[in-house]
Design a protein around this nucleic acid. Structure first.
Ligand SMILES: [Mn+2]
Ligand SMILES: [Mn+2]
Ligand SMILES: [Mn+2]
Ligand SMILES: [Mn+2]
Lengths: 220, 220
DNA sequence: ATTTATTTTTAGATTAATCTAATATTATTT
DNA sequence: AAATAATATTAGATTAATCTAAAAATAAAT
């Protein structure tokens, strides 16, 4: 099994994520949108990934990631998230600055490097956005988590992850004072527009929009 | 100025190194040999780099790196060497294991990343092989250095760099006990084969071959 | 059940990077 | 100075990854 190109790794990651870790079939157009490319390019790449048995592809029917593909995708995801931890923990980047750089670093090929990096970082289990880091075998467990938007009134929680990792969104969270580990209590829910009032760490009263509520994930 | 491809960066680095930092013209064949590729591929790439004004290329006459090209090459070299320091100092790699990985890492594009990495490492001036690390402006100073082979008998020195960074050579140095910072005294020189006897740190008597003597650089 | 719209694939081009084989240029030797 | 050898460039293919436009398949609407 020859090693994958950057493009192939990126496609595999997209298929993995869009299928929710391999559960559903994924459409050509959804991949094109996710990767900001054209459907024609996707079809072509799917044919090639299929020849390498990284995906199960039936023309016009959608694509599923194979076991082999899932293993490869999870290693790329592992690298991405470990590098993000490195950037935040060691190089003092903010969590909104690390994604693009990790997109590059995730393609560095050296199992030993990743093993050493993992050691250096103390085997972190989650990245700066609360996403779980797969181990060498692709295994990981996620924290149970639910969007703030779905928490019932007066419900408590702890922020454990963000769904969107867009830089603007993360900067907004910084500005209003929401961070991983923050304690939340939903004090009011507005039916009309999905916005809500929450209490952060028992002291900061915040009004957050539906968009924010849907993209902040809490556990309790 | 659009950013350079990995291939372009690698060619630029080769031209820079082979020309001894831009002093001489470089031949097509020497680049082909250095990069383990074919002369035809080199000609093609030189034409393209020339269009981008990264090199001054006269067909059949050889190539010189331009000022623009030198700046680009030095930034890649800076990244390569900083990453090597990171791998050795922080991830506990041995100096013979870092080159291939740095060959990949040197192409990551993020000025901020390199600035932060440099901070994190404490602004090192030399890499694990004793090579100087250019600053953000491409400036650096090398230690005065001479191959052990050229040191006269009974001459003292300190090992400051290695000319060859091949893994086998570095492992050999590890085995016989030569390392950066070691104190050397030439105790005997054999005309016949260029080998010599040296005293390391005033206590270890070593016989070293011409090959070793030519690739260990000392200062005094 | 047709027709229409949407989605997906294929056909044909393009660009970067590589190769082999053929040609051209420059250097070296008679 | 001509012949030969060494070096370098071009011509023509190939592969990966992308694109636009055309064709094919599937889904939705009449
Ligand atoms: Mn990310
Ligand atoms: Mn992340
Ligand atoms: Mn190196
Ligand atoms: Mn080095």
């Amino acid at each position: 099994m020859k090693k994958l190109s950057f493009a192939e790794e990126n496609y595999l990651k997209a298929v993995y994520h869009l299928s929710n870790a391999g559960e559903f079939d994924v459409t050509t157009n959804s991949i094109a949108e996710e990767m900001d490319t054209k459907a024609a390019s996707v079809s072509d790449m799917l044919r090639r990934l299929s020849e390498k048995e990284m995906v199960v592809y039936r023309k016009y029917q959608g694509v599923k990631i194979s076991e082999k593909g899932k293993i490869a995708a999870l290693q790329v995801i592992r690298k991405h998230r470990l590098w993000e931890v490195f950037l935040v923990e060691k190089l003092k980047f903010n969590w909104d600055q690390v994604h693009e750089i990790a997109e590059q670093l995730e393609h560095i090929k050296s199992p030993l490097l990743i093993q050493r990096l993992d050691d250096f970082l103390g085997h972190p289990k989650f990245d700066p956005h609360g996403d779980p880091i797969p181990d060498e075998n692709g295994l990981f467990k996620e924290k149970p988590q639910v969007p703030l938007a779905e928490v019932e009134i007066s419900g408590d929680g702890i922020v454990v992850a963000v769904k969107d990792t867009n830089s603007m969104f993360l900067q907004h969270l910084d500005r209003i004072g929401i961070y991983l580990g923050a304690k939340t209590k939903v004090t009011e829910k507005v039916e009309f527009d999905g916005s809500m009032e929450i209490l952060v760490d028992g002291k900061n009263k915040l009004f957050i929009s539906k968009e924010v509520a849907e993209n902040v994930l809490v556990t309790h």
